[in-house]
Design a protein around this nucleic acid. Sequence first.
DNA 1: CTGAGGCTTCGGGGCTGGCCGAAACAGGCG
DNA 2: CGCCTGTTTCGGCCAGCCCCGAAGCCTCAG
Lengths: 230, 230
Amino acid sequence: MSSLAAIAALIGDPSRAAMLQALLPGEALTAGELARVAGIGAPAASSHLKALVEAGLLRVHAQGRHRYFALGGEEVAAALETLLCLARPAVSVRPPWPHGEAFRTGRLCWHHLAGRLGVALHVRLTGDGWLEPAPGGWATTPRGEARFTELGVDLAAARAAPRFACDCMDWSERRPHLSGGLGREITALLLRRRWLNRIEPRSDEALRRRRLECTPEGRRALAAEFGLAA
Amino acid sequence: MSSLAAIAALIGDPSRAAMLQALLPGEALTAGELARVAGIGAPAASSHLKALVEAGLLRVHAQGRHRYFALGGEEVAAALETLLCLARPAVSVRPPWPHGEAFRTGRLCWHHLAGRLGVALHVRLTGDGWLEPAPGGWATTPRGEARFTELGVDLAAARAAPRFACDCMDWSERRPHLSGGLGREITALLLRRRWLNRIEPRSDEALRRRRLECTPEGRRALAAEFGLAA
DNA sequence: CTGAGGCTTCGGGGCTGGCCGAAACAGGCG
DNA sequence: CGCCTGTTTCGGCCAGCCCCGAAGCCTCAG
């Protein structure tokens, strides 16, 4: 019995896939919320969630009478995004996503920046000498080290992550954006400085995907600090 | 209906997963061979293959009374390898692969070099100034351009590929190896020069995975040309 | 032209697995 | 202490789909 089949079959059920997609932004959701997202009853959801946790695709965190579920790790998020890259062409005939275009400009993938903004940042950081290739991903250049510190990026926290900086394929842009501890810390900084703002989901959005937009100040700052035209 | 679920469900059936894994090395196999690999009859295999082709996971090439099936593209190979990365930890308790260790040193992924050799080469090329980051992957530096040409790598053929050079996650090493046209051309050169040799599958191997090994001459040459210690 | 081999389509059987309702368990709250 | 809510377990129903056998189409060999 191939374990490839076992993992893929877990993702392959519509209800479970809906739950996993709902968790892609990195938020933890309760069992009840996930049941509603998938459009099934609580019992069915419970059994699905149990299977996903046992396979390591999800992690649970019990808190009071709620149980919060989140993706099992960055590898899981990466696998889902890679599969979405395969899935997209098939749907592109009809509107590719209920809230399609809005997602492409900026959103959170796991805990790091994705969409056009994320890809543009990746191009800048790797092309302008902030980062240089390293085994398994990217390392800071001396220049990047200085610039990140100056900006207030917590490099120590970034280095404490399992991976410092690596590529994560962006399902809407089909080009990599920055993942790993550095991706997370940069994104945290951009949100802290209000250069990016979260867009609250509309009431008709079943999934709580976290879209992001540039503030006017952020637009100026990103141009000045990173040379982003966006 | 989530298209993520549809794609994953296709990979999630044990018979189809076995076929896809058999095609991972990049070889094209006939419908009958794939039926044997999956351990099912010809009618069942035919219906599976039809579904996989319709979804774009496979391509067909009819030739005489045979129909040759191959993976639909590098994205498909990448998705399968990413999923295998997720699947591996679960199996690592028991022998992770029927022919585990032998696969780790060198093998073909799609048409490019994977395993320890592939990862080591990736580290060298990206770390020693042969390649530099470029949007969506890697580009040759002037020095790399000269060295590749000198070695006899067909850069024109590599540039004709949909992607010139990009990362492909290695499921056994969990670090990227070189994919895209350049990865294919380099691998072709290494085989042509007999620096790498294919190891013929043993008769008890159901899957025709293409393992690779260094020849003694190849070991010297790789050390001299690329600085590989392997 | 005829036979053989590879592949596909069709029809039917069997079984896995996803869903729901009812009931039980657990934690918070008045 | 009792109620409410969130979650899990159990039993049973049903659909989907995975498989095989039989039959037909196409290609190649002699």
